[in-house]
Design a binder for these strands. Structure first.
Lengths: 351, 351
DNA sequence: TTCCTCCGTAAACACGCGTTCACCAAAATA
DNA sequence: TATTTTGGTGAACGCGTGTTTACGGAGGAA
C-alpha cells in the first residue's frame, strides 16, 4: 500500500494525497475527507525511508550512553543504575510524543563520530548524551553542524570556551556544588573535621563540582585536606574497593567519608563491614545520587538526591520541542538537589 | 558526498561503486582498489534511507520492552533493574556487531501492532521482546509475516499451540521450574513446612513456572498450601507492600516466604523490618533473579540467580546471526539457574 | 580473417514520497 | 460578456542507491 494506490482509490492525484497527509492548504474539505477515509480504511502510513529521502523529518532521536559496565566477578556484569534509568526515561518521554529512540553506546571519545554519522545519515533529528568534558570538542563539532543536541551534566565553562551560546544546544545540570556543601555542612555540624572523599571522574562536570565543593567547604572551615584521605574512585565500585582497602591500612582513619556517588559509598560500606569497621559508629558515610537501593541498605545511606528522572525528562522534552518548532537556540536548566538524612552519619562526640 | 561523487572522483560509473561496496563480482581488482581508495579518502558511507528504499537491509533491530515503572512516591519513579540490564545488554551486543538498536516501550497488548509497524516500515530487520502470553497471538502474527524475532521468557506450550515450530523464531528461557524446586527443597531441608509465596504475573512464563513449581514441591511433600499464604505480588513492589501488610495481620504467619523475584522479597523485608518481624529469625525469605542489590542487603538475600545478561546476549546473537544468514528456522535455548545461599534463611528448630 | 563468447561498464529504471510549477476551471470583477 | 483572479489539481522532477539490461571491446576459436 503506497500513496499511488491511495490516490487511485480516492480518485485524486498522488500529490493531493501528499497535501492531505501533510496538512497543506489548497485542498477543499470534501476532497480531504474522501482521501482521509481511504487512508483510514487501508490503514495506510507513508514509508519512513522514502519520507526521509525526500527531505522530511525522521521522528527519531539518538541516545548516546557512555558504557560503564563493570565486570564484578567473572561472568557477572554490574551496570550502574544511574545510566539505566537514563535510558528508560528518555524512551518513555520520546515514545509518548511519537518519537523513536535509537540507543548507542559510546566507549571512547573516538566514538563520538558515530553521533555525527547518525545525523548525516538522517537517522536521527536530535541527540541526547551525557556530558564528558574530555570530548567537549566533539560536542562543539556537532553543534557547529547545526544539529540539535541535549547534554546532561555539562560544564557551563565549556560552553563559554567553545562559544556555543548561540548554538542549538540544551544543557541540563543538577546543582551539585550546593548539594555537596549542604551535605558537608551537615557532617561538620555533627562534629567531624577529618573528612575524606571518594572522588568521581574529573572529566565529568558533576565529578568536578562535587570535588571542588569538598575543597571549598574544607578550606572555609580551615580544615586540612590530607592527601591520603582523597580516594580516586572514578565513580566505579571496583576502583573503590581497592582505594578503601588501601585506606584502612593507615594508622588513622577519617571520621567521615564523602563518596561522590552512591555506588562508591555502598562499595566502601562493603569493605568496612568485611573488615569489622562499623558504620556509622566508627566512620560516617555520605553518598550522592540517591539511587533506589540507598534507602534499602542497612544502615540506610545518607545521601544527596539528584532528580535524574526529572532532568532527563526535561532534556528530552526540550529537545523534541526544539526539533518541532525548528528553533535554533541555547537553553540551560539547573535542578536543585535534596539532602536526605538517613542512618550512616553520627555525631562525633558519641564515638 | 554521495555515490555519484565517488564515481566521478574514481572515474567510473555509479553502478561500479555499488558493486564494490556490496562486494559483487565482475569488477577487476585494479578498479576495486581505486574506488575503495576514494571511498576511504572521503569517508563515504551510503545513505541508509536510500539503501532501505532500494531494498537493502537496514542494520537495525528493535527492542520492545514492557514498561513497568512504578511510582513509588510522588515524583519518584522506581524502574525494575531487571529490564534495565536488558536494554544495556542488547545495545552492547548489537553495537559491537554493527547494528543499531531502536528501543520502544510497550504498555498494553494493543501496542504490539507497533512491532509490526516497525517491520513494515523497514525500520528494523529483527525484533527482541520479553514474553507475555497475554499477547501470544501478536507474536504469532509477527512470525507469520516472516519477520525474525527473539523472545525472552516465553512458554514453549504457546509455541506448540500456535504451531510456530517452523517459523523464524528464537526463544530463550531460564530453567525456573528447576530453580524453584531447588530453592524450596533447601528451605524444606531447614525444617520449614508453612511456606508462603509472593507470586509474579501469571501472563509471564517465568511467573507461571515459579508458581507451579511451588505447588508441585508442596504437594510432593504433602504440605498444605494455605490460600492466605499466597500473596499476589505481580512482580511489583507496591503490590507486595499491600499484600505483606495484609499477611502480618493474620494470627499465624508462615515460617518461610518464597518471593517470585528479588524486588518483591526486598519489599517484604522492608515491611517486616518496619513491623519488628526479624528476618531470618522470625521468618525466612528466598528471592529470585539475584539482582545486584540482593548481595548488598542486610541480611544478604538468599536467592536463585537468573543469568539475564547471558540470556539476552544469546538472544541478540542468535537474532543477528539469523538475520545475516537469512536463515528461517526455529531455535530455543534454556539457561540453568543457580541457587545462592546467603543470610535470609534459618533452620526452623532454632526459632 | 571472421564469428562467437565473455567480461566489464554505463545507462536506465525502480523504490515511495515531497515539492514545484504550470494549467484549467470556476468564481469574481469590470 | 469579456477579463482577471483565485483555488484546486496533476505532471514532472529530485532525493540516493540497488538492480537490470544492453552495449562495446577484448580475446579465443574456427
Amino acid at each position: 500500500m503506497k500513496s499511488d494506490d491511495i490516490a487511485r482509490l480516492a480518485g485524486v492525484s498522488r500529490s493531493t494525497v501528499s497535501r492531505v497527509i501533510n496538512n497543506y492548504p489548497n485542498v477543499p474539505e470534501k476532497t480531504r475527507e474522501k482521501v482521509l477515509k481511504v487512508i483510514k480504511k487501508y490503514n495506510y502510513e507513508p514509508n519512513t525511508s522514502a519520507r526521509i529521502l525526500a527531505g522530511k523529518a525522521n521522528n527519531t532521536i539518538g541516545l548516546f550512553v557512555i558504557s560503564i559496565s563493570e565486570h564484578d566477578s567473572p561472568g557477572r556484569i554490574y551496570r550502574s543504575t544511574y545510566y539505566s534509568s537514563f535510558i528508560n526515561a528518555v524512551v518513555d518521554v520520546a515514545n509518548t510524543r511519537g518519537y523513536y529512540v535509537l540507543v548507542h553506546t559510546i566507549y571512547s571519545g573516538k566514538d563520538y563520530s558515530k553521533i555525527n554519522h547518525s545525523f548525516l545519515q538522517k537517522r536521527i533529528s536530535g541527540g541526547i548524551l551525557v556530558g564528558n568534558e574530555k570530548d567537549s570538542c566533539a560536542i562543539k563539532k556537532i553543534t557547529d553542524m547545526g544539529y540539535p543536541i541535549a547534554v546532561v551534566d555539562y560544564d557551563p565553562k565549556e560552553i563559554e570556551r567553545h562559544k556555543m551560546k548561540d548554538s542549538n544546544l540544551i544543557v541540563v545540570n543538577s546543582m551539585d556544588f550546593e548539594g555537596t556543601v549542604q551535605a558537608l555542612n551537615y557532617i561538620i555540624g555533627l562534629g567531624h573535621n577529618d573528612i575524606g572523599i571518594i572522588t568521581g571522574r574529573n572529566e565529568t562536570y558533576s565529578g568536578k563540582q562535587r570535588f571542588e565543593a569538598y575543597r571549598y567547604v574544607m578550606e572555609q572551615h580551615g580544615y586540612k585536606i590530607r592527601p591520603e584521605f582523597i580516594l580516586e574512585g572514578e565513580f566505579l565500585k571496583k576502583k573503590t574497593y581497592n582505594e578503601v582497602e588501601k585506606l584502612i591500612k593507615l594508622k588513622k582513619l577519617p571520621t567521615a567519608l564523602f563518596a561522590c556517588n552512591d555506588d562508591m559509598a555502598l562499595a566502601a560500606m562493603e569493605v568496612f563491614e568485611r573488615e569489622g569497621i562499623r558504620v556509622p559508629e566508627d566512620i560516617s558515610i555520605i553518598g550522592f545520587d540517591d539511587i533506589p537501593v540507598a534507602s534499602q541498605m542497612k544502615p540506610a545511606l545518607t545521601t544527596v538526591r539528584v532528580p535524574v528522572d526529572d532532568m532527563v525528562t526535561k532534556a528530552t522534552d526540550l529537545l523534541i520541542e526544539g526539533i518541532e518548532k525548528e528553533e535554533r537556540s541555547f537553553k540551560s536548566e539547573n535542578f536543585p538537589t535534596e539532602f536526605i538524612s538517613r542512618d550512616t552519619c553520627m555525631k562525633i562526640d558519641k564515638q
